[in-house]
């Protein structure tokens, strides 16, 4: 009796071993795959991050402070903030309106609309700049008319604002559309049937539901707007202290061999990027936790 028992437990464990071999990888392979992946990410993600922070502070805190408070840097920071104060709310209203139309209604051409929203993402930032140079430039469509009426769009703030609106158009809409589609419209219908009007329903029912997706979309849009480079480089004219946004100021400093100052200004945008991905992770973990609770 005891003998058969032992043999059966033995064969059990050997079956288990064979089973594991057939459905997962051996430990040495798992470890090497993890190490290769981490080496790749270390080289491409972590090293650039470290080099920015190291170079920004390598001359000490006072050099960093001097670089980010020098008049041209302050002008670039002010301009960048001014631009995002216009761009982010504009794209937020667009994102919420589009997501509402797409998620709550059926209409023909919906997939075309969604593809259209994706499009600015695939267009080169340089081509975005070019599009508005052709629109507003001296030899462009509206150039002569703008000149006659003494309106400046190119090489001025309006041009910078419009190329950044174009470039960051998809980000908030892209976050909200799948989120609102997934949530359906039952809750809004309940609210409306109970007598609340449309605005009240949006404010008290929809907005709390999409709050986190909206916050991440806004943060991402903000980070991308502050960091937009190619399109702004084309339309801003790179006038120092006037039409240089932070990324353009970084370029100027770098090309003038003021590396510490270039990295000091870069460290501000890098901090913003880190905050952005931290908020994205927080939103994702929050979602996963809620789904686990809902499933349990």
């Amino acid at each position: 009796m005891s003998l058969t028992n032992t043999s059966s437990s033995l064969s059990n464990s050997s079956i288990e071993k064979r089973w594991r071999r057939a459905t997962e990888e051996p430990a040495w392979l798992r470890l090497s795959l993890i190490l290769i992946a981490l080496a790749f990410l270390g080289l491409f993600l972590v090293l650039p991050l470290i080099v920015v922070l190291y170079s920004a502070f390598s001359q000490g805190l006072s050099a960093w402070q001097a670089a980010v408070t020098e008049p041209d840097a302050l002008a670039a920071i002010r301009l960048t903030l001014l631009v995002v104060i216009i761009v982010v709310p504009a794209n937020m209203v667009f994102g919420v309106a589009t997501a509402w139309a797409v998620a709550k209604f059926e209409f023909r051409g919906k997939s075309v609309l969604i593809s259209l929203i994706d499009m600015p993402f695939a267009i080169s930032p340089v081509v975005v700049g070019l599009i508005f140079v052709v629109m507003f430039g001296s030899q462009g469509w509206l150039g002569p008319w703008l000149y006659e009426h003494d309106l400046k769009i190119l090489y001025a703030v309006p041009g910078i604002v419009i190329v950044i609106i174009f470039g960051t158009l998809p980000f908030i809409a892209r976050e909200l559309i799948p989120l609102m589609q997934q949530q359906g419209k039952e809750e809004e219908e309940a609210s409306l049937t109970l007598g609340a009007n449309g605005w009240k329903t949006f404010w008290y029912v929809t907005l709390p539901n999409i709050k986190w997706g909206l916050i991440y979309g806004v943060i991402l849009c903000n980070a991308r707007a502050m960091g937009e480079f190619g399109a702004v480089a084309v339309v801003s004219g790179r006038i120092r202290g006037e039409t240089n946004t932070m990324p353009l100021h970084i370029e100027v400093l770098y090309n003038e061999y003021m590396f510490t100052a270039a990295f000091a200004v870069s460290s501000l945008l890098t901090g913003l990027a880190l905050v952005t991905i931290a908020i994205k992770s927080a939103v994702k973990w929050n979602d996963e936790r809620r789904q686990r609770i809902a499933a349990a």
Partner: peptide, 14 residues
């Protein structure tokens, strides 16, 4: 997600 959030000019000089 870092390359998606980091400004391209910063990535370039890094």
């Amino acid at each position: 997600d870092l390359p998606f959030a980091l400004p391209t000019a910063v990535a370039g000089i890094a």
